[in-house]
Amino acid sequence: MRLRRCGPDAVLVEVESLGEVAAARAALASAGLPGLVELVPAARTVLVSFQPGSVGLRQVQEVLDGADLSSPPAVASTEVVLPVVYEGLDLELVAETAGLSVEETVALHSSAIYTVAFCGFAPGFAYLTGLPEPLCQPRLETPRTRVPVGSVGVAGEFTGIYPRASPGGWRLVARLADDAAALFDATSSPAALLSPGDQVRFEVVS
């Protein structure tokens, strides 16, 4: 573990795995640090920001030294069920790569329970862990210049949903159903539907 200062009122915690990210975030969130403004997890880091001049910044190291980062604690989470239609442009490619039929691929992807590890890339884009091993596949060799909003894709150990149309190289397996809730709405509070720690399930609709 390494701590790096980020300006006068923040510190970046660097760890070795997603599990350690979750454990560090949970330990800091429950520590009652004075002046804590935000915890921002990523694949191998947690950004910890404070109100200007807060003494909480000096307590981060002590909290983490006393935490067991090898065992993320169980925390209360929100379950979000997202209705999806499995008609992604790369569904057959993902099935072939996994050595499965399309039907088996759909069943495998939709039966898993996912956890939001962190958010990034675009507002509302959540990186979901829990992807079954056969579906852990590389990104496309040539990214698309435009991925439709609501597309569900896989890349590496993650699955995710594009909250808006954008370039992207994930292998697309499905799309959100037309009546699915928006992943990001700047007029709502919170603006993002998914937050780190949330549990996500995909419900197959036709």
Rank of each mutant, 00 (worst) to 15 (best):
E79R: 15
P52H: 11
G99Y: 11
S101L: 09
S188Y: 02
M1F: 14
A23I: 08
D9Q: 08
E79H: 13
Y127E: 10
R58I: 01
G169V: 00
R164G: 03
A191K: 13
V94Q: 02
G168E: 00
L183D: 01
D65K: 09
H109T: 02
G66D: 11
A174T: 01
A107V: 03
G156T: 07
V63S: 07
S110I: 00
E96Y: 08
A186W: 05
E92T: 13
V85M: 03
T142D: 07
E62I: 02
A107C: 04
A10Y: 12
E87L: 04
L176Q: 08
Q59L: 15
A31T: 10
T105W: 01
Q59W: 12
V94F: 11
V147G: 04
S151I: 06
C136A: 15
R58V: 03
R4G: 00
G56K: 09
V75K: 11
S49P: 05
L89N: 04
E20C: 02
L135F: 14
S188H: 06
Y114E: 00
V37F: 06
L91S: 05
E104M: 04
D198A: 09
V149I: 05
A29Y: 09
L93F: 08
L131D: 03
A192M: 06
E87D: 15
A182P: 02
S17T: 12
E16S: 14
R201D: 00
G66I: 14
C119K: 01
E20P: 01
E203K: 15
A22S: 13
G120C: 09
L39H: 09
C136R: 15
S151C: 08
L135A: 13
V15G: 02
F184N: 02
P196T: 06
L12I: 11
R2T: 12
A43T: 11
A191Y: 07
A191V: 10
E133S: 14
Y114T: 00
F202L: 15
P148A: 09
G88E: 10
V116I: 10
P8D: 12
F50Y: 09
V204M: 02
E157L: 15
M1T: 11
P52F: 10
R44Q: 14
R175W: 08
D68S: 12
R4Q: 11
E92V: 12
R5T: 03
F184S: 02
V63M: 10
C136I: 02
D9I: 01
D65E: 13
E87S: 14
S195Y: 05
A112C: 04
V116Q: 03
G153W: 02
T115M: 09
V102S: 07
L64W: 03
V81A: 12
I161V: 14
R201N: 00
L12R: 13
R171L: 14
A76C: 04
L194T: 01
G124D: 04
A10F: 11
V80A: 09
A117V: 05
H109F: 06
F184D: 03
L100A: 10
L140S: 05
V205P: 03
G160A: 14
V147K: 06
E103D: 14
V13W: 07
T142R: 13
Q137W: 12
D178R: 11
A186T: 07
L57P: 03
R44T: 13
A181M: 07
L93Q: 13
R5S: 08
P123K: 12
L64C: 08
V48G: 02
G88C: 05
